[in-house]
Design a protein around this nucleic acid. Structure first.
Length: 428
DNA sequence: TGACGTCAAGATCCG
DNA sequence: CGGATCTTGACGTCA
């Protein structure tokens, strides 16, 4: 029997880009009523289920669930007994997660601080961790589903602050401890310090590459693989495979800011340098599932042209609107159905997307898409398209209105091929 | 007191 | 009304 190729799982955090029905809703305190809270939870569970469905369909096996699933989750103003009220919805979604073999996690933000000297802050942090653990329990997740936490503040005395983390960790319920893992952050706790804590407390450690680049331990010479391997040793069998965070610096933003998309060449070189593929990568990137699919396709076990063709279906009009040259190059590239030119494919796609907008190319793409409706559109639909197109040609504005119009046409006329296009991401 | 990070809600203005 | 463009919220730490 042939041995199964070990491939990394690659996931994304909280939200999708360009997937219908996956938008979460929030609520401000001053508008909070039990009715509104209940309605939003119900809506958000539908959105979560839509994301889980999307992941299942697209081979994504790693996903972080948003902490905003329940609005105002730990505030006294939220009096809705949501855990019992939505028990069955959670269980149903949990069943889907298990059936599609997804590993889900959660990640309280920088404001959940377990090592604060302020007991009030610690109390709220524990409550927040209980909330996160409750979500995972309701979904029926096992110990391989993790809650990723930062160590917290330094308060002028890091050694003492780390001791306080240990003391407060021991106060946590088993329900939390079962899922809790710790991660290096980009301002205070380096990977070396987090490993010290993790090794002392027997807590798995998540290595975050960008945090490490921004906040490295002083005078170190070890390669990244050293820290990743040392973190690997903190993962027990029951915790599942080692999980890491991966992101790239946005060159236009401040140090530590996540990039718009993942540069696949850079990511592949990173993995190559690690010398391992038996680990999970949670991507932290603006374009979310789009980059996750890109990286997943690069490492997936079944490297078949069909996966690139599916991607091409989503990207093609966006590419056409930017670079007809790359559009043609990609079409040719995908001709050989036995090949799998994944790196070149995404290089050409991303190169096109990074090309400055060209008016003529935008019009070309618009007319190309209009071709779907030429024969089936009503007279009103045709007039509106022509009016907006004229306006765009004359003034350069109303491109979003045009896209909106075309997207609505695609909905009305059931052009499912168009509905999935990344071309419509900004207006969906 | 504002920056930090995050994303949707809410406000406001335009045509 | 659709659409564009701010501003606010909810959290804790640190300069």
């Amino acid at each position: 029997m042939r041995e199964e190729k070990i491939v990394p799982r690659i996931g994304y955090a909280c939200l999708t880009v360009g997937v219908e029905g996956t938008q979460f809703k929030t609520l401000t305190l001053k508008n909070a009523t039990p009715e509104k809270i209940t309605a939003i939870i119900s809506h958000n569970l539908d959105a979560l289920e839509a994301i889980i469905d999307y992941n299942g369909k697209n081979g994504i096996r790693l996903f972080r669930i948003t902490s905003d699933l329940i609005p105002l989750s730990t505030l006294p103003q939220n009096t809705v007994p949501w855990a019992t009220l939505f028990q069955e919805r959670f269980a149903a979604i949990g069943t889907k997660i298990k059936k599609t073999n997804q590993r889900v996690s959660m990640h309280p933000g920088q404001y959940t601080v377990l090592n604060s000297p302020d007991e009030n802050v610690v109390g709220k942090a524990i409550e927040d961790l209980e909330y996160h653990a409750t979500i995972l329990e309701l979904l029926g997740c096992d110990q391989t589903s993790k809650i990723i936490l930062h160590v917290g503040g330094a308060y002028g005395d890091k050694i003492q602050a780390m001791e306080r983390f240990k003391t407060n960790y021991l106060r946590l319920s088993d329900k939390i401890k079962k899922h809790l893992v710790i991660e290096n952050d980009d301002r205070v706790y380096t990977i070396e310090e987090v490993l010290t804590l993790g090794e002392a407390l027997n807590i798995p450690v998540v290595y975050d590459n960008l945090h490490d680049a921004v906040n490295p331990s002083p005078n170190r010479e070890e390669p990244i693989s050293y820290w990743v391997d040392r973190a690997e040793a903190t993962w027990k069998k029951a915790d599942g495979r080692q999980k890491t965070h991966y992101s790239q610096q946005d060159p236009t933003k401040h140090l530590g800011a996540h990039s718009a998309t993942i540069d696949l060449d850079v990511f592949m070189q990173y993995v190559k340098n690690l010398g391992r593929t038996d680990l999970d990568f949670m991507l932290e990137v603006k374009d979310k599932n789009i980059s996750a699919l890109k990286c997943h396709n690069a490492f997936r076990a079944d490297q078949k042209m069909i996966h690139l063709e599916n991607e091409w279906a989503r990207y093609k009009y966006l590419v056409l609107a930017k670079s007809p040259k790359n559009y043609q190059l990609i079409r040719t590239l995908l001709n050989d159905k036995r090949s799998y030119p994944v790196e070149l494919f995404y290089r050409l796609v991303d190169e096109a997307l990074n090309t400055p907008s060209d008016f003529g190319h935008e019009v070309n793409a618009l007319e190309h898409i209009w071709g779907y409706f030429k024969t089936c559109a009503t007279e009103t639909e045709r007039r509106r398209f022509e009016k907006l197109l004229e306006e765009f040609k004359n003034t350069g504005t109303s491109l979003p209105s045009l896209k909106n119009h075309l997207y609505k046409l695609a909905t009305v006329h059931h052009e499912n091929y168009l509905l999935q296009a990344y071309y419509f991401n900004e207006i969906r």
